[in-house]
Nucleic acid binder design. Structure first.
Length: 883
RNA sequence: GGGCAGUUAGCUCAGUGGGAGAGUGUUUCCCCUACAAGGAAAGGGUCGCAGGUUCAAAUCCUGCACUGCCCACCA
């Protein structure tokens, strides 16, 4: 075995082994319970970054753990076509060649995007393999696959025929760069420092005027009213008066509406129904005209010719100048407000009227709320996200599902070309043969594609072929799935919609537990994202430190639901830990050949305090780790395993073992070996879901030296039942008896919290005794949380009966002993003129006395919580010294 | 405006009522047969601020400040 763990060869070797042996492929097995996850399909916009890696590794660890627990685990891989996002990437690339997608045309463009798709897909799949993901590759899916396409069409047709999908001319968010409509959640807000214009609107047939404050003067051509608050005394007398829009002299009315804020600006709003959602609502309430003045290119249209075709900024400047020139402008103030931006290209969003497809989500939302809020079929981890999820669903408007782009699922709607008045659009899997209204036979398909999130919402269904056959075996067995692991950024975009669709189409929830992890940020705290171009490629870390180190590091910092900042330290930390594991195993493996397993049963009785201690710690660690896995707190798993393995197992148990293995008592050294190997093996198993590569190799080597799975299991049981349950409980019972006697002597009633004794004014307690023991009790409170006894549950139960005094009594005993021992040993060392510091580091050197440095003995500082072991260690130095 | 996180060592962060911690960096010593990717130590902290509850608060409560995120509004 190498001195340093070689991750590069080992990673490759094991993943190949898993692939060759089809370890990850899962079939329906009615005798086993399934545990299923579906990989949130990464967009094919580019390769995977740390955020994806975190997401994938979390799932991988959970699934591998569930597999250890005996579940029939399935993890379905897949990719998302990414709609606008991917189209944007291609457009950007084309721009480098000075081309646009329109130069190519729809067909050639789709060919181009297909090339891109294949290239990126392969890279992403390779990356997932590099990360060690236990994905069932035979099931790899893509959101543009036929099975997915069938699901999309099926869902659309069902919803269309139900009447919840409809086509309408409504105000939508329009990205002038992507040239498509967007849904409400695809819009981001950004603060912009701008101006606010105060404009005079003359009252018709009068010399007076009303002043309107607006941040968008260019839309005044589209004004069809001016609104005030119904209870605004300043303006209420003007209600229903006619006023004149400046520059165009159109006559409009003053209306009253509760949407107006009296305090804001002048308390008067110009109403532009075509270009503002709120104004649009006002218009609906008051039956106002709608005048479009901005077109889909973001330019002025339907306006006086000198403004026509100007972009927004140009129009704004010109109007500002004109208003000033004509005396309509009162003032212009600085003003900052938030503006809508496209979530994919950050271009300013225009609100405008457009003919689009919408989905009425009211019914679905209610069901999706109920499964979380009322029936608790779905749980969020952490739970705090449930509130946001519910409140979002409660305030949902209809979902605009059509997009004016080329990359995506074409809307399965056909129009009869005869354009007969009675003809209606037909939703259908294929081109209809005959129009049911006019018997015509020529059709054109709707040009638009569906929002990419429409197919995403169907993802858990489409990967199990719901579109083709909703009663297939896979769907019956694997669905609903077990967990969904994702970042909080897509709870609304994706999670909520999957739940809505799943309930709509199957009456089942799509998954039981939603595990939300944080967003990975770089060291500046900025979000890592492909569009920002500040991503770290996990491949770089894998090369440097290995996959296991990447995995362990990410798991360590991934606290449920909290954003994380990545720094190199954490990978270094992990790499070192893995090397530590490697070397500790190396030590065990080289010694274990001497183990004589046949006699193990008798040996167990020979355990010393160290053995009992490590077994208690070990037993306790297993419990904590299992619980943490169960709660999906993987960061706690890593912490517990790290602390146990390094600080307890390596620093203490193995260090002791070195000396004890020299013992001529074969029985005793056999016991040490047995315990050492048992703990190692079980710890490796618990680590294996997180760092599968190194642990697989080490477990294999352990098996090779004859330390097989079956023997281990028996031995673990033996050790746990005999040592922990029997020996430890007898020890503990002794202590408890002792405490009871002592408490009795002190006239302290059983059930009192001994920690509070000194401070409380409890009159039933003999204060004299307390005072006599003041020093005693005070020192107890100082060292109250020693790990030795406190961490055994059996003991804890017993402790609870007599309240908090138990562990303290034990400690005081040892504390006094410790102080005595320490003084004695320090004295002896002092006379021997040995430098204890260097001594400590020379523990294993038989000849160290000859090499002992000349320097004076320095103060020995010892942590209290390890004091028992420290004493032992010091005693050992002494023993060696005396020889 | 509403909601949710966070504020602990130089840096990155753990820590759910009693001992202030880890990694990293700094300083000192050590290649001793598992590990120098290691070991033994040292230094470094009014645990954001102010109140409150408690014998006891980094931890629970209230308020405030700052940072970040989400939602709504922004004429």
């Amino acid at each position: 075995m190498d001195k340093v763990y070689n991750h590069i060869d080992n990673d490759k070797k094991w993943y190949r082994y898993w692939l060759d042996n089809k370890i990850f492929s899962t079939k329906v097995n009615k005798n086993k319970k399934p545990f299923v996850a579906i990989l949130p399909p990464p967009n094919i916009t580019g390769t995977l970054h740390m955020g994806h890696a975190l997401n994938a590794i979390l799932q991988d660890s959970i699934l591998r753990f569930k597999k250890l627990q005996g579940y029939n685990t399935l993890w379905v891989p897949g990719l998302d076509h990414g709609g606008i996002a991917t189209q944007n990437v291609i457009e950007k690339n084309l721009k480098k060649e000075n081309k646009t997608i329109y130069d190519l045309g729809r067909k050639k463009f789709l060919v181009k995007i297909k090339e891109w798709e294949i290239n990126v897909k392969n890279q992403i799949l390779e990356q997932l393999k590099l990360l060690g993901c236990c994905l069932d590759w035979d099931r790899t899916a893509f959101t543009m696959d036929t099975s997915c396409s069938k699901a999309v069409k099926k869902a659309f047709i069902l919803l269309y025929n139900k009447g919840v999908i409809y086509r309408g001319n409504k105000i939508v968010n329009w990205c002038v760069k992507c040239r498509t409509a967007l849904s409400d959640i695809e819009v981001e807000y950004e603060t912009e420092h701008s101006k606010i214009w105060y404009i005079k609107y003359p009252i018709y047939n009068s010399n007076s005027f009303i002043v309107v404050a607006t941040s968008r003067p260019e839309t005044l051509f589209g004004d069809t009213a001016v609104a005030v608050h119904p209870s605004d005394d300043r303006y209420i007398k003007l209600l229903d008066q006619i006023i004149v829009v400046p520059l165009v002299n159109r006559k409009i009315r003053i209306i009253a509406d509760y949407a107006v804020d009296k305090i804001f600006g002048t308390g008067v709003v110009k109403v532009t129904p075509a270009h503002d959602p709120i104004d649009n609502e006002i218009a609906l309430r008051h039956n106002l005209d709608v005048i479009n003045v901005i077109n889909t290119s973001g330019r002025m249209s339907n306006v006086p010719s000198c403004y026509s075709n100007l972009n927004i900024e140009e129009a704004r400047d010109k109007i500002s100048t004109e208003l000033k020139k004509n005396g309509f402008l009162v003032k212009v103030d600085d003003y900052s407000h938030s503006v809508k931006k496209c979530y994919r290209c950050s271009t300013k969003i225009e609100s405008l009227m457009s003919e689009q497809w919408f989905l009425n989500v009211k019914n679905m939302s209610q069901k999706a709320i109920d499964v979380v809020k009322k029936t608790h079929q779905i749980h969020f981890y952490p739970k705090s996200w449930e509130t946001s999820y519910i409140s979002w669903l409660e305030n949902l408007r209809d979902w605009c599902i059509s997009r004016q782009i080329w990359w995506g699922h074409r809307i399965p709607v056909y129009y009869c070309t005869s354009k007969h008045l009675t003809c209606k659009p037909i939703a259908s899997f294929n081109i209809p043969k005959e129009c049911p209204y006019c018997k015509g036979s020529n059709f054109v398909q709707d040009e638009d594609v569906l929002d990419t999130w429409f197919s995403s919402a169907l993802w858990p269904l489409s990967v199990f072929n719901w579109g083709e056959n909703e009663f297939n075996k896979d769907l019956q067995y694997f669905y609903p799935t077990s967990i969904l692991v994702t970042g909080h950024e897509i709870i609304y975009l994706w999670v909520a919609r999957m739940i809505q669709f799943s309930l709509e189409f199957t009456d089942k929830i799509p998954y039981k537990d939603v595990i939300i992890h944080g967003i990975v940020r770089n060291s500046n705290g900025k979000k890592m994202s492909k569009s920002l171009g500040n991503t770290i490629d996990p491949r770089q870390i894998i090369n440097q430190y290995g996959t296991d180190a990447l995995r362990f590091g990410l798991m360590k910092v991934a606290i449920q639901g909290r954003d994380i900042q990545i720094s190199n330290d954490v990978f270094l930390y992990s790499r070192n830990f893995i090397n530590k594991i490697w070397n500790a195993s190396r030590f065990v493996l080289t010694n274990i050949k001497n183990l004589n397993i046949k006699n193990s049963k008798t040996q167990i009785q020979l355990g010393e305090l160290v053995d009992k201690w490590i077994l208690v710690e070990y037993y306790n660690m297993i419990k904590k780790v299992n619980k943490a896995y169960q709660d999906y707190n993987i960061n706690i798993v890593t912490r517990e395993l790290y602390d146990f393995f390094w600080y307890k197992y390596c620093d203490w148990y193995i260090e002791f073992a070195k000396i004890r293995l020299c013992s001529k008592d074969v029985e005793k050294s056999n016991l040490v070996l047995l315990i050492m190997a048992t703990i190692l093996q079980k710890t490796l198993q618990l680590l294996s879901p997180i760092i599968p590569f190194v642990t697989s190799e080490l477990l294999k080597l352990l098996n090779k030296v004859g330390y097989s799975q079956q023997q281990i299991n028996i031995n673990i049981d033996e050790l746990e039942s005999k040592l922990i349950i029997k020996q430890m409980t007898t020890i503990v019972q002794d202590i408890i008896t002792k405490i009871r006697v002592t408490l009795n002597e002190m006239h302290i009633p059983v059930g009192t919290n001994i920690k509070s004794l000194f401070y409380s004014n409890n009159s039933t307690i003999n204060q004299n005794i307390i005072r006599q023991n003041e020093h005693y009790i005070k020192s107890l409170t100082q060292i109250a949380s020693i790990s030795f006894i406190e961490k055994i549950d059996e003991v804890k139960n017993a402790v609870v009966l007599i309240a908090g005094g138990c562990e303290i009594y034990l400690l005081i005993d040892k504390y006094i002993e410790y102080n005595k021992e320490r003084t004695r040993i320090e004295k002896e060392l002092n006379t021997a003129k040995i430098n204890l510091k260097s001594l400590a580091s020379k523990l294993h050197n038989v000849n160290f006395i000859n090499k002992a440095p000349k320097s004076e003995v320095t103060k020995v500082s010892i942590k209290v919580d390890n004091l028992m072991l420290k004493i032992k260690k010091l005693q050992m130095y002494l023993d060696v010294l005396k020889k």
